[in-house]
Design a protein around this nucleic acid. Structure first.
Lengths: 351, 351
DNA sequence: ATGATTAGTGGTATCGATTACATTTTGCGG
DNA sequence: CCGCAAAATGTAATCGATACCACTAATCAT
């Protein structure tokens, strides 16, 4: 406990050079003779010396730390995004500080700036959030993941909802569906709008029944999916269903079951988000998986490049969209007895 | 960009006092006249001055930062634990640094100690992990969550698995079951052992059928639960089933369904962990919920008290167990047509 | 050979807050 | 109104690494 820290001075003395030289070695500066460098490296090695990042941060004003602001830790998509962020951060030598978004907003240690080099916001409701305020008046580099940013100073990384929805409907079409219903999330969410666009485009491209009766709104919850599906069943018929997220798909399946409709025989169903429970419900639920890990990696990578670029983004587009992928499961399985797919073979377009 | 930081000296000048006094105000030292204090507070307020935590950390050697080492970010129990940890940390004025356990172990910035005051390890497989090594030779205060620690220097916070299992079996008994099967996790996991003990005790206390044929092993996966249940069905009969976790319960239900047994009519089922998907499977799955948020809070609280106590734990027991709670859902519902519970009314013991 | 570069290195002020110690002010009994 | 303890405040060294500047030695062009 009484043991003093090994400082750069100890290293310098041991190597018989000045602290400045040791510092240069530590920072991989070019201007050190390779013999000296080796000398210093050995001395530090022997002493077990490592630079104190706190002292370095004080002097340089750079802490190699990124602050992660998370809206809800228990959002199901968070963990995978974190995996991506952490991996990239680690590889690039950045530390990660985390806290809850509102915690930080109410200013507990709000302008405890200066020791973070950038900010990543993970939220799904940033449209009612002032990013400029979060970045602080010092205008720290900031990027958000999973939510739109209107402000071009702050880039954002998003799943390509349009493309994901398109994939879902394409899959249903290729499974032989001819009328695909869509249960959308609330229409004021950018994600909902994009998914609706993707749905409509695919309906057109695959010559599915184009009918506004096939579209209903939910509020992302399971019960809203159940009710939306009931409304659909009350006014029209369909053999495919695309839900804006997995809980709504789950609720819809309940409604279908109540109407004695079998999934996937009578109606094939695709959800969105590829939540963990897709593997546990029966039938297992086909879904669109967002590239969460990649989103995290890209966000971290972009932020780092902003940090190194004096806080500015170098490329033009501040909205970065990453492609989703389809996860096929039983809820869209084509069984030998009901080879819907064959009926439609040939309709399938490119892409 | 060229704007210099507002320092303690600016605050001191503005308030007409010395930096020492400002510092004392900042640190809520008693020895400041309340008039001076107000003066300083106003000055700082006006200037928008906040102490630079980096400088403070350099001087004091305390950073008010706790390092969170997470084994797997995508473990389903992580988010709720984080909620607890973050909340407590925020309230107590601690920052949270996160990284992956193995990332840090392989020494990337390993002895970048000195700027963290303590460590929290979140892992479910710490029995093959050297905690002393993680804490470093400086012996930083360390606590683990969700995993056992053999070393009394490092406390751990766990769910009370024994009690949770007991609750599950009690619930099945009270729902009218007379023979409760148990699908255990691998027997080398401490959690499995505790849950088995809880199961056995409840079987005794509630006078359920005591039969080693009712116990099978799985490996936590859904398919292992399916197979274990098949084995059970091949050698015995039962009207209740307790699975060591939710995926195994889910697999078991598949096997039951294959055998044309209805859940909960023929067999009532309880899982463990209260995973998110319990609400989405059909029937919805009763489960034992671990007090994850509380575990996080208690871990953080305990760690902080260790930090303030020179790294040592003040109370004796280094294993802290928190009670689980039962979540009743449809997989154990007693229907009017099958009022098993009534059959057993009166058997119910205390607790 | 001379002056001009440049590579390599050292000396030391500095980042901003804390705190041991010194100093001043206040309070109070007599 | 004195004296002395307690309270309040100031002075300045310090934490450890960095980076500006200065300096030496080596390289090079003419």
């Amino acid at each position: 406990m009484t043991k003093r820290r090994v400082t750069i001075r100890d290293g310098a003395k041991k190597a018989g050079v000045s602290t400045a030289t040791v510092s240069r070695v530590l920072n991989k500066s070019k201007k050190v003779h390779f013999r000296t460098r080796r000398l210093v490296e050995n001395a530090c090695e022997e002493l077990g010396f490592y630079r104190d990042p706190i002292a370095a941060a004080l002097r340089t004003g750079k802490s190699n730390t990124v602050h992660l602001l998370i809206e809800r830790f228990d959002g199901s998509f968070i963990p995978d995004i974190l995996v991506g962020i952490e991996g990239k951060a680690d590889r690039e030598g950045y530390r990660l500080l985390v806290s809850k978004l509102d915690t930080t907003q109410r200013g507990v240690w709000e302008p405890g700036n200066q020791y973070i080099d950038g900010i990543i916001v993970i939220s799904d409701s940033v449209h009612n959030l002032n990013l400029g305020e979060v970045a602080g008046k010092d205008g720290l580099p900031l990027i958000c993941v999973y939510s739109y940013s209107q402000d071009p100073r702050y880039p954002c990384v998003l799943p390509d909802d349009y493309h994901g929805a398109y994939l879902a409907v394409q899959h249903l079409a290729e499974s032989g569906c001819e009328a695909v219903a869509f249960i959308s999330g609330p229409s004021d969410w950018p994600a909902s709008q994009d998914r609706l666009r993707g749905y409509k485009q695919a309906v057109k491209d695959f010559a599915l029944r184009d009918d506004s009766n096939l579209i209903e709104l939910g509020d992302w919850t399971m019960v809203s999916g159940y009710r939306a599906c009931q409304r659909l069943l009350g006014k029209t018929t369909f053999d495919g269903l695309f839900a804006g997220n997995d809980p709504m798909a789950s609720g819809a399946i309940d409604a279908l079951r109540e109407h004695r409709l079998d999934v996937p025989r009578d109606v094939a169903v695709v959800g969105f988000d590829d939540a963990a429970f897709c593997r546990y419900v029966r039938p297992t639920l086909s879904s669109i998986a967002m590239p969460l890990k990649e989103m995290g990696e890209v966000a971290m990578g972009t932020l780092i490049s902003m940090i190194r670029n004096d806080g500015r983004l170098d490329h033009n587009e501040h909205v970065i969209k990453l492609p989703c992928v389809l996860r096929r499961r039983d809820s869209t399985k084509v069984t030998p007895e009901h080879p819907r797919a064959e009926r439609r073979t040939g309709y399938v377009t490119s892409n």
